[in-house]
C-alpha cells in the first residue's frame, strides 16, 4: 500500500512537471511575444516604442533566448518559490494572483460540496423510485441544468435579482469590503456572497452526477447481494444504504478527479460574467497580452491542483474499496 502511494506520488510529480513544460510551451506558441503585444497595445493608444526600447525589453525578460533556456530559468525560479514578475502589471506574479487562487479554490470547493450534497440524495431517490413522478421531475430539471450554459444562467440570475430584489449579485464582496483587509466581517460578507456563484457553477455538474449515481445504483439494486441482505430481515432503507449505495459510491467518489478541473475551467466565464475575483479572468487577460510568467504560473498552479485532487481521490478510493486495498498487498 505504501509502495502504491509512493508510486502515485512520483507519478503526480512527473505529471506536474509535464504540465509545466506544456504550459510554458503553449503560452509561447502564438506568434510574437509579450513585447509585440505590448507595442501593439501602445500604438493602439497612440504611443510608440522605439526599436531600441523593444530590444532592451526583450533583453530584460530574456525573450530572445531559446525556449529551453527560458523554460529552465523559469522553472528553477518557480521551484525556489519565485514565480517571476508579471510583465503587464509590473509586479511579482505572486502578488498579482494574491487571494484569487484560494478564492477560486473556495468557490470550486463550495460548488463541489453542493454537487455532492444534492446529487447523492437525488440520485438515490431517482434510482430507488425509478420512473416515479419525482424521478421524472429531477430528470427534467437535471437535463435543463445540463443543457443551459452556466454563463447564461449567471446572466439570468443576475438580471432577476437586480430586477426583483434590486441586488447587485456580482463579485464576492460588498463594495465596502472589496479593498479592505481581512476581518471577521469580510469573511461573513464572503460567505453571504458565496452561495450564488457556487449554485450556478454546481448546476451542470449536479445534473451529471445525478445521472451517474442513478445509473450506478440501478445497476447495483439488481445484484444478488441486495436480495441476500433483504433475506436477512434488515429494514429496506438500511438494505439500500448499506449495500447498493455503498457500492455505487465508488465510481461516484472517483468523479471528483474530473469534476475539479471542470469546475475550475467552468468558472472562468462565470467569473467574468459575475465579476468574481478568481484567477479565471486574470488568466484570460494574461493570455491575451502574452504575459507569459503570469499565465504560465496560473496554468501550472491549476494543473498542479488538479493533479493533487486526483491523487487525493486515488487515496480515498484505495481507502474505501477493500478490493483495491487487498490487490495491492
Amino acid at each position: 500500500m505504501l509502495a502504491f502511494t509512493v508510486r502515485r506520488l512520483l507519478l503526480a510529480i512527473l505529471t506536474i512537471w509535464v504540465i509545466s513544460v506544456l504550459a510554458f510551451a503553449i503560452i509561447q506558441l502564438p506568434p510574437g511575444d509579450f513585447v509585440t503585444a505590448y507595442i501593439a497595445q501602445l500604438s493602439a493608444s497612440g504611443a510608440s516604442v522605439s526599436e531600441a526600447e523593444a530590444v532592451s525589453l526583450r533583453e530584460l525578460y530574456g525573450l530572445g533566448q531559446p525556449f529551453y533556456v527560458q523554460y529552465a530559468k523559469w522553472i528553477v525560479r518557480v521551484i525556489a518559490g519565485d514565480f517571476g514578475v508579471s510583465m503587464e502589471w509590473n509586479r511579482p506574479v505572486g502578488e498579482v494572483i494574491g487571494d484569487r487562487l484560494w478564492l477560486t479554490m473556495l468557490i470550486s470547493f463550495a460548488a463541489l460540496i453542493l454537487i455532492w450534497g444534492l446529487a447523492l440524495p437525488i440520485g438515490i431517490y431517482s434510482a430507488v423510485r425509478q420512473y416515479s413522478i419525482g424521478d421524472y421531475l429531477f430528470t427534467l430539471i437535471g437535463f435543463i441544468g445540463l443543457a443551459v450554459p452556466n454563463f447564461l444562467l449567471a446572466l439570468v440570475v443576475m438580471y432577476l435579482s437586480f430586477r426583483f430584489f434590486g441586488a447587485n449579485v456580482g463579485g464576492l464582496f460588498s463594495s465596502e469590503y472589496e479593498l479592505a483587509g481581512w476581518s471577521w466581517d469580510k469573511v461573513v460578507d464572503l460567505i453571504k456572497h458565496l452561495p450564488l456563484p457556487a449554485i450556478i457553477l454546481a448546476l451542470g455538474g449536479t445534473a451529471q452526477l445525478i445521472r451517474i449515481m442513478r445509473a450506478n445504483l440501478l445497476d447495483e439494486l439488481r445484484r444478488p447481494y441486495v436480495v441476500t441482505a433483504r433475506a436477512k430481515g434488515i429494514p429496506e432503507y438500511r438494505v439500500i444504504l448499506k449495500y447498493p449505495v455503498r457500492a455505487a459510491l465508488n465510481p461516484f467518489a472517483s468523479t471528483v478527479a474530473y469534476l475539479f478541473p471542470y469546475l475550475v475551467s467552468g468558472s472562468v466565464i462565470i467569473s467574468i460574467v459575475l465579476s468574481l475575483p478568481t484567477v479565471g479572468p486574470l488568466l484570460v487577460r494574461s493570455l491575451i497580452s502574452q504575459d507569459m510568467f503570469l499565465a504560465g504560473t496560473i496554468v501550472l498552479l491549476l494543473g498542479a491542483l488538479t493533479v493533487v485532487g486526483t491523487f487525493i481521490s486515488d487515496l480515498v478510493l484505495m481507502w474505501v474499496d477493500p478490493r483495491i486495498r487487498h490487490q495491492l498487498d
Binding site: R223, P224, Y225, T228, K242, Y243, R246, A247
Partner: peptide, 8 residues
C-alpha cells in the same frame, strides 16, 4: 460470489 457484498 455475487450474493455477498464485497465492501464488508
Amino acid at each position: 460470489m455475487a450474493s455477498f457484498s464485497h465492501y464488508y
